[in-house]
Structure formats: C-alpha cells, structure tokens
Design a protein around this nucleic acid. Structure first.
Length: 882
DNA sequence: ACATTGTAG
DNA sequence: TAGTGCTACAATGTT
C-alpha cells in the first residue's frame, strides 16, 4: 500500500504568503509564499514520509460553477501582486523537484484533489490532503486525512481531520459539512448563503435533519421560526450553494498514480532555484556533492601573473566587502586567496614574481589602508596570519572564526565549511574532503586544482559570512564584546605567543634526570613488593596485580575494570607500602613525561617555548593553552612546583607575576548583589575565614582551621554549581552534613542562592546563560530528559556566568596591560596567562613600573561592587615570582 | 579513537 | 530512580 500526499497549491501558497513575513531575494523577487509553502511541504514530507506527492492548482478559466450560477464570481478574492508573481515561481520550483502539478480547465484545484483522493482511496492508498481551506473537510474519509496548517505565534501547527475529527469539531459528518456551509454561506468563496442563518443555526439544522433537502422536507418542524421562514424563502438558493460548495469527485483528470511517485526532490535544478531564491535553510537539505558542485566554484580562479594580481588588489581596495586568507606552510607563505563579491574569487599561489613577501605586503596594505567607509577585511584565522602582516590593535580586519566562536562556543572547529553550513546554509567540501591529509600549502605548491578550490572557499566564506556574522552578533548583543574584547585579544595573544617564555634547558634536563633516577629505584621497589614485573603505567595491569593477585580491597570500578585513580589508592596507601610507592611512581612519571620530557621538546632555538594560546576552544570564554599546555604547570605539590624554577627571564630581566585574588568569588558577590557577601569581601583579608565566621556564627578570631577549611570548600563548591554529594566527597563528610553546610551558606547569603537559582531558570528559558559582558554559554543539557545530563546543565548554568565573567575581565586586563607596555615602549612583555594570573618578563630597570601597571590595569579592568585585588611579586624564576 | 590518569585555575 | 560539583590539555595504554 502506498501513501499519497496531495497539496492544494493556491491555498497553501496563500496561507504562506500571509503567514511568513515579507521576504525578497537580491533580485527583488518576493519569495515569502514560496518559502512558506516549501517549509510546510517539507514538514509534512518528513512527518508522513509518503511515497507519492502531487500539487493541484486552479486555472484562470471559468469552471463548471460559472455555468451553474451566473453570478458566481470565482473562487478567490483577487490576489495581491506580490503573491501573484510567486505562483509561476512556485510551479517552477515544484517542477524542478519533479513534483507533478495538476490543473484542469473547467475545474478547481479542490475538484482535482477530491477526485484523486477518492480514486486513490478506492485503490487502497492512504491519502493526505493538505489545504488551508476548510471546505475540503467534506473529503475526509476512512483513508483520507485532511491536513490544515495553522500558524500561530510564529510556529506552524498542522491540524488533522479524519471524519471523526470533523464530527468532534463541527458535530456533523464530512458530507453534512457542505450542507452547513451552504446554509450559512461562505463569503470568501462568494457562495451565497441563506440570510439570517448563521453557523450555529445551520449546524443545529443539519445535526437534526442531515441535509438541507431533508430539513426542507420537515419544514414545519424547523425551529426557530426565523430559520424556518428563511429556509422556506431561500431553499433554491441553499441548494444551489450546496452544489457550488460541493467538491466534484468525478472530474476527468488524467492522473497516473505512478507519475506522482517521489523519486528525488533534491535535484540539481531544484538546488539552483533554492540558491537563486536564497532559501538558506532549505539549501542545507541538499547534498551539495550531488548537485554537480556549488555553482560558486565556477567563479573560482587561480591567478599566476603579476598584472592579474595587481588588478585584484586594485579592485579589492574599493570593494565594499572583501574576504582574504593567507595560505601558510611551516614557515612561509604559500599563497593568498581573495574574494571580491559573488563572482570574483581568486587564489594566488606564491611563485615566481608573486613572492610570499609581495602577497603579504599587499594584504597588509589592503588592511592598513582600508577606507573606513568600507567593511573591514574578513579573514578566517587572524592570529595565524599576523606573523606575516605588520598589523596592530584596531586594524580594519575581522576574524570570522572568532565571531563564530562567540555565536556558539561549543563547536570543535570554526573552519570555512563549518561557517558555510551554520551561517550561509551552504554545504561545501571541507579541506579534508578536497585534500585529504595533505596540507593546503603543499597542495598549492603541487598545483592541485583542489587546492585552488579549497583556498577560494576560504576567502569566499570569510567574505560572505562577514555580513551575516556581524548581524548575528548585533542581534545577540555581542558586537561590542566582539569588537572591544575578542578582536583586540587576538593581538595580545599573538604578542604573547611571539614573546614565548624562556626555559632553562640544562636545568630542565637535570630535573628530568633526577626524576628518572628516582623512578628507576621506585620501579624496582614496586616489582619487589608486588612480587613480579609489570607495566605500572597500565591501569589494567596495575588493577589486576593490586586487586586480583594481591587481593587488596578495591574501591570504585571503571567501565573497563578496577579504578586505580589517586583518590582510590590514597585510601589504601597507609596500609600497603606498595600502593604508596605506586603513588609516588605515578607522580614522578607524570612530572617526567609531561613536564620534563614534554616541555623540553618545545624549546626552540631561541631558548624559549612559544606555546599556542587558543581563543576559540572553551565553552566559558577562557583561553586555552596547547603545544605545550602552559596553563597546567605544577604548583600544588612541592616536587612538581620545582619545575617552575626552569621558567626564567632572559639576562638582565626579571619576572613579575600578578594574580587576581579570589576573582570568581568577588564576581559572585557582584553579580548576585548579596549585601552580606559584598560587605564580607570589602577589604577582606581572609575570605574563607570570614565566610566561616558568618556561616558558623563564630567571631572571626575564633574560627577554627576546620571551620575555615569547610568554608573554603563550600566557597569553591558554590562557584562550581554545588551538590551535596560533591561537597561531601571533597570534605570526606556525610552527604547530610554537606547539605547542612550548603543550607547554612545559603541562609547566610540568600542573594547568592537567589542568583544561582535565577541562572538555572534563565538557562532553561533561554537555552543559554550570559556573563557580565554578554558572552553566551549555550546549555542544551538543561532540556535533557536525563537527570544526570540535566543536573550537569544546572551546574553549568551556575558556574559559567562566574567563570566566564572572570575570563572576560582577565581578557580586558591583558589587552590593557599589553597595550600600555607597548605604547610606553617598555622592555616588558606578557609571557603567560593562567586564567587569573599574568606572568610578565620585564627589564630589571622597569620592574617597579611594571608592577604598578599590572596591578593597576588588572584591578581596574572592571568596576564591580567589590574591589578586585591583585597580588604581584617579582622573582628570578616563575616559582620565586609567585 | 577511546579510556584512564593527572596537572592547572 | 542514579549518580554528581566547573573549565581545560597531554601522556599513556588499550581497542
């Protein structure tokens, strides 16, 4: 058995026209009705998954109804021009998708639909008839469902009617429905009714008598008298109206069921139409690979001659919107791509006269001399290009990757294909699709045509996305954040990466060797105590040795076996010397492999590590550090923190290390507005002790170390989105006790409780939470039906505004510090950022001044209800500067 | 590619 | 009911 969907073309188009806000493409064509129609159609196709589909349209010609009734004016009010011009367009689009269009002289679309619906039902098919016109309800039948889309509050709902549904809503059967209509008349269809009979009376009459004819036969009984009189006088008119409203189900329409079979709606022709009409969300449904490629690729060019390149730069200079991208190999420029509008996208490989330098100089000039009346040059990843361009804060350039990050920080990548999909509704081949594992620079050198395609897409997407992303940022209230925080930060991070941090290679090597010596000893001792050799680094083997062969009591289990995590082993360590040794071994091997060996591999010729600082990774707005990670250098344990001694300033310089004291808690005080917390943090020396004093109602001087420790844990817990379980784990207390602490805390600081609850509420309502500066963190987990997921979402909702605001403030501070150091031409530079800490390498002579600058800029990066406190220290290595 | 572990704020 | 406090990155072993 098949399933057929029939659509009343004019009716749905009409409904879409009034339901969808005005929409035109760049040619000025009105497209809203076609757009709305397609959306309704796709929605129904997705729901029903029919195997057959056809759309019926009315024709201009007179129908049999005109002959029946001389005054019959036609079926519809005159269409507005804006809708009228969309009818042929709609038909073209449907034809391009291979959907049959049914019309027939002398009949209306209703009649065609009715005829085919009944015919197919008789042949055993399931039929859905989609229309905005309720007159079609008369067609409802056991296997014919009438579907009426209703737009309310922006969303389209589809109401379905089988005969029982009609009965429920109108008290009459589908066949009787026409009689009701005929009695009351239908102004929109110019069907005359019986005067003074309204919907109520008409329904009552038909419910009682089943038809107009039968009611007339029982005229004497008809009530009220008014209706009786009207029916008597206008009976002929009523019958005529009924005939007019009656859908003809026997029109001689040639229709082969097989012709309506849905083969493939997503044809290249249809794709071209969607493109021309600029239906981005619909375009996204198409698989571009099948479309014979994006037609924009027709405008991708490779330019290899000097005069060609000159012309491009000349033209780019005056173009309103330009997209560019330097193509970089290891340490050199392999090419430049430029997009100037829809049809001019160029890849210029660096070769011959077109040297890398030439290309960089021109790109630099294009940006540096950009006419302020034009849009800034759009690029994908500015920081990676800055080494080749002499640009600084405020240049006329925007980074599309960073913009994409602000709009959705949860994504893994912000490459051109991601941006094209998310913001242009285009499916374009990714770099990997085009080049596999090969680098773009390499492919360009080898003159692979795919390299030109890939390069051009980069410039094209940057260019096209610029307007869209700007609009979106504006709409979401993040344009200021983008322009005044994220864009400038690119330069700060670039300067920091360029500066790098000096690491004493010899000392690091020595440190590693010491570790290795101790590791070798420990290793032997462990084998001895365990009674056999095994790979201590393998949690699997270690678990088997400890918990099976040696029969130690095991704690929690992981998916794959016994957990050998530190917190489990620590509980066993006092009783089992081997476990203690394993813990030490773990610590040492960690230090050796990740830090001693790991860092050594990143020291460059200049004796410095130039790690990467990434701006588009974290969900909260923090920056992250890779290759190597310089934000997790040990400090908590004595042995580990010794590594920090190998981080040293260059000769004649010192380190100034400045860190925010309790920035997250201060932000909590500010954002929650809790008076008591604000007062506590005004001028606070020991915040945790004050919290303990207030929560436990103890004079500050009498706060015990335990009380302070508990208060500190609660403080941390609050920032992380506390749970009784988490706190109980942290403090090794019962869940009940933990809950009591939390409740006491909230009693003491009710504003904090209110604030955290509010964040969860906002998160659920909006799907995201925001920082003080408007940065958004989407939290899809809040909508999850899974308790775990949802709880996670709730904690994230509580934590992100705080962590994110701290990140924002640090970013502002960094930018301010970097700018001032540079503007004053100081021999000082930021070398590391560790979330709430800045490490600056400064000439000895400037140390005092730099301490001032750092402290001042960091303290005043934000104006909160509590002061921001900064601790700054000077030292000859990172450890001593802490 | 994924899991486990351990560093940091 | 289960199972939990947030954000990252890297080394190692296992599949």
């Amino acid at each position: 058995m098949g399933k057929l969907v029939l659509i009343d073309g004019h009716s749905i188009l009409n409904r879409a026209f009034y339901g969808v806000p005005e929409l035109t493409n760049s040619e000025g064509l009105h497209t809203n009705a076609v757009y709305g129609f397609l959306n309704i159609m796709f929605k129904i196709l997705e729901e029903e998954k029919p195997d057959h589909l056809a759309v019926a349209f009315d024709l201009k010609e007179q129908t049999f109804r005109h002959k029946m009734f001389a005054d019959y004016k036609g079926t519809r009010k005159p269409m507005p021009q804006e809708l009228h011009e969309q009818v042929p367009l709609m038909k073209e689009v449907l034809t391009a998708m291979g959907v049959p269009i049914l019309t027939m002289a002398g009949y209306e679309a209703d009649d065609i639909l009715g005829t085919i619906a009944k015919r197919c039902q008789a042949e055993g098919e399931e039929v859905s008839v989609v229309s905005g016109d309720r007159d079609l309800l008369q067609l409802a039948d056991t296997h014919i469902k009438i579907r009426i889309p209703k737009t309310s509050r922006g969303t389209t709902e589809i109401h379905d009617y089988y005969p029982e549904d009609v009965k429920r809503e109108y008290q009459v059967t589908p066949t009787e429905f026409i009689d009701v209509k005929a009695l009351m008349g239908d102004t929109s269809d110019n069907i005359p009714g019986v005067p003074s009979i309204g919907e109520k009376t008409a329904t009552n009459l038909i419910v009682a008598y089943g038809s107009i004819e039968n009611a007339y036969a029982h005229l004497e009984e008809v009530k009220p008298p008014r209706a009786k009189k009207a029916l008597e006088e206008h009976y002929d008119m009523a019958v005529m109206s009924k005939e007019l409203a009656q859908i003809c189900i026997t029109c001689p329409i040639p229709f082969a069921y097989e012709d309506a079979k849905i083969e493939n709606l997503y044809t290249p022709e249809a794709y071209q139409y969607m493109k021309r009409l600029e239906f981005k969300s619909i375009l996204a449904r198409f698989d571009v690979q099948d479309m014979g490629g994006n037609s924009v690729e027709e405008h991708f060019w490779s330019v290899e001659d000097l005069s060609g390149a000159e012309q491009i730069f000349e033209k780019a200079k005056g173009a309103k919107q330009v997209g560019c991208q330097l193509i970089l190999a290891e340490n050199q420029v392999a090419g430049l791509t430029v997009c100037i509008g829809e049809e001019e996208i160029y890849t210029i490989p660096a070769a011959g006269f077109l040297t890398g330098n030439y290309l960089c100089d021109h790109l630099e000039e294009l940006i540096a001399k950009r006419d302020p009346a034009l849009e800034p040059v759009a690029v994908l990843d500015l920081k990676s290009q800055l080494p080749y361009l002499n640009l600084d804060y405020g240049s006329a350039v925007v980074d599309m990757g960073v913009a994409g990050y602000l709009l959705n920080p949860l994504k893994d990548t912000y490459e051109y294909d991601d941006l094209a999909r998310d913001y242009l509704g285009m499916t374009v081949p990714s770099k990997t699709d085009l080049l596999g594992k090969q680098s773009l620079a390499k492919a360009l050198e080898e003159e692979l045509p795919e390299a030109v395609t890939c390069g051009c897409y980069m410039a094209y997407v940057a260019c096209k996305a610029a307007g869209v992303l700007k609009e979106r940022l504006e709409k979401e209230g993040m344009l200021k954040l983008y322009r005044e925080m994220e864009m400038p930060l690119i330069y700060s991070l670039y300067h920091m990466e360029q500066a790098g941090v000096r690491v004493d290679k010899e000392q690091l090597k020595l440190y590693g060797e010491q570790l290795e010596g101790k590791i070798a000893t420990l290793e032997q001792e462990i084998y001895e105590l365990a009674g056999e050799k095994f790979n201590i680094n393998s949690p699997k083997q270690l678990g088997e040795i400890l918990f099976e062969r040696m029969q130690l009591p095991h704690g929690k289990k992981t998916k794959t076996g016994y957990s050998t995590a530190a917190d489990v082993l620590e509980k066993l360590a006092p009783e089992y010397p081997v476990v203690q040794k394993i813990l030490e071994y773990r610590q040492l091997t960690k230090l050796n492999s990740t830090y001693a060996q790991g860092l050594a591999g990143f020291i460059r010729e200049d004796g410095r590590i130039h790690g990467k600082f990434n701006q588009t990774i974290t969900a909260t707005g923090r920056i992250s550090s890779t290759e190597p990670n310089l934000q997790n250098i040990p400090v908590r344990m004595e042995l580990g923190r010794a590594i920090r001694k190998v981080f040293v300033p260059e000769d004649g310089y010192v380190f100034v290390d400045a860190d925010y004291s309790q920035i997250e808690l201060r932000i909590l005080a500010h954002m929650s507005g809790d008076e008591r917390l604000i007062n506590a943090y005004r001028d606070a020396q020991d915040i945790h002790a004050i919290t303990a004093s207030e929560v436990f109602h103890t004079p500050l001087a009498e706060v015990t170390p335990l009380q302070r420790r508990n208060a500190k844990a609660v403080n941390f817990g609050i920032v992380y989105g506390i749970s009784a379980f988490g706190l109980s784990e942290d403090l090794s207390i019962s869940r009940k006790e933990a809950l009591e602490y939390i409740n006491k805390y909230f009693e003491t600081y009710p504003g904090v409780k209110q604030f955290l609850d509010e964040q969860v509420k906002l998160g659920k309502e909006q799907g995201y939470v925001t920082t003080m500066y408007g940065r958004k963190r989407p939290i899809p987990e809040l909508k999850s039906g899974n308790f775990m997921q949802r709880s996670f979402g709730e904690r994230v909702a509580m934590n992100s505004p705080i962590q994110g605001t701290a990140a924002d403030i640090m970013k502002l501070a960094m930018i301010a510090v970097d700018r001032e150091l540079r503007e004053k031409h100081l021999r000082s530079r930021i070398v590391l950022q560790v979330h709430d800490e800045l490490l600056v390498e400064t000439h000895r002579d400037e140390a005092e001044q730099v301490v001032q600058i750092l402290t001042d800029r960091m303290k005043h990066a934000a104006d909160l209800k509590v002061s921001l406190e900064v601790e700054a220290h000077t030292g000859d290595n990172w450890l001593d500067a802490k």
